[in-house]
Computed example of a mutant assay.
Amino acid sequence: MNTPGSFRCFCDPGYTLDTDSRSCIRKPDCSGLRCQLGCQIGRNGALSCLCPPGLQLAPDNRTCKDIDECEGPFPVCSERQTCRNTFGSYMCVCRPGYILGMFGNSITCRDEDECATGHHHCSRHAQCVNTIGSYICHCEGDYVGDGLNCWKKKERSQVSTYFQYKLCKQSRLRETCP
């Protein structure tokens, strides 16, 4: 079509204007195939269903199914991240013990200082020590335990004796109990 100082291209029915705005390409009629997301014309002129990147054609040759990029032979995320599959793609999220933050000029997963943020489970009688990706707990001076549970040294021996007595009474050898 002629326009003042230029022209404009239109295509005949069954064709669509290509990206160069001058060429007409055959528009595939997918209605007969009942494709889920679209179709393409093959080299021999035959129509076939098409799936976008991240999806693959299902065995029914009409629908698209997800490709799990997280299950591939090579890791797609860094060692401080874990891969989560999404429909048609994936995302990398920080592993527990790491938080998203700046490192140099890039955004990455960096160590979370659980001791500083209070995101730990240490006893109130324990010292929290940050480690890369985690933390450890140490009972303070007059306390003993695993760091998550700390008892006064005297209290623990009394508690321990009490539980030993209870276990002994429940066992078959009651006559040997104190």
Rank of each mutant, 00 (worst) to 15 (best):
S21I: 12
S21R: 10
R22F: 07
C24T: 01
I25H: 05
R26D: 01
K27C: 01
P28I: 00
D29K: 08
D29W: 01
S31I: 06
G32S: 10
G32Y: 06
L33E: 04
R34L: 09
C35A: 09
C35T: 08
C35S: 07
Q36M: 12
L37M: 15
G38R: 06
Q40K: 15
I41R: 01
I41A: 00
G42D: 14
N44F: 04
G45P: 08
A46L: 11
A46P: 12
A46M: 09
S48C: 05
L50Y: 14
L50C: 11
L50S: 13
C51A: 04
P52L: 12
P53Y: 06
G54K: 05
L55E: 11
L57A: 07
L57S: 05
L57Y: 03
A58V: 06
A58P: 12
D60N: 14
R62K: 11
C64W: 02
C70I: 04
E71T: 14
G72N: 07
G72Y: 02
F74R: 11
F74I: 11
P75Q: 02
P75N: 00
P75H: 02
V76A: 02
V76G: 01
C77K: 03
S78I: 05
E79G: 05
T82S: 04
C83E: 01
R84C: 02
R84Y: 03
F87L: 12
G88H: 04
Y90K: 04
M91S: 03
C92E: 02
V93H: 02
R95D: 00
P96W: 01
G97H: 01
Y98K: 02
Y98P: 02
I99E: 01
I99H: 07
I99A: 02
L100G: 01
G101I: 00
M102S: 03
M102A: 06
N105C: 07
I107D: 03
T108G: 06
D111T: 02
E112F: 05
E114G: 04
C115G: 06
T117H: 03
T117V: 11
G118N: 07
G118P: 10
H119C: 05
H120R: 09
H120N: 15
H121E: 13
S123Y: 08
R124K: 13
A126G: 13
C128D: 14
V129M: 14
N130I: 04
T131A: 10
T131Y: 08
I132G: 04
G133F: 04
Y135M: 09
Y135R: 10
Y135H: 11
I136G: 12
I136R: 14
C137S: 12
H138S: 10
C139P: 12
C139V: 14
C139E: 09
E140Q: 15
E140W: 13
G141D: 10
D142R: 14
V144E: 14
V144A: 09
G145C: 08
D146C: 09
D146P: 15
D146V: 15
D146Y: 09
L148Q: 13
L148M: 15
N149S: 15
N149R: 14
C150K: 02
W151L: 13
W151D: 11
W151C: 05
K152A: 14
K153S: 13
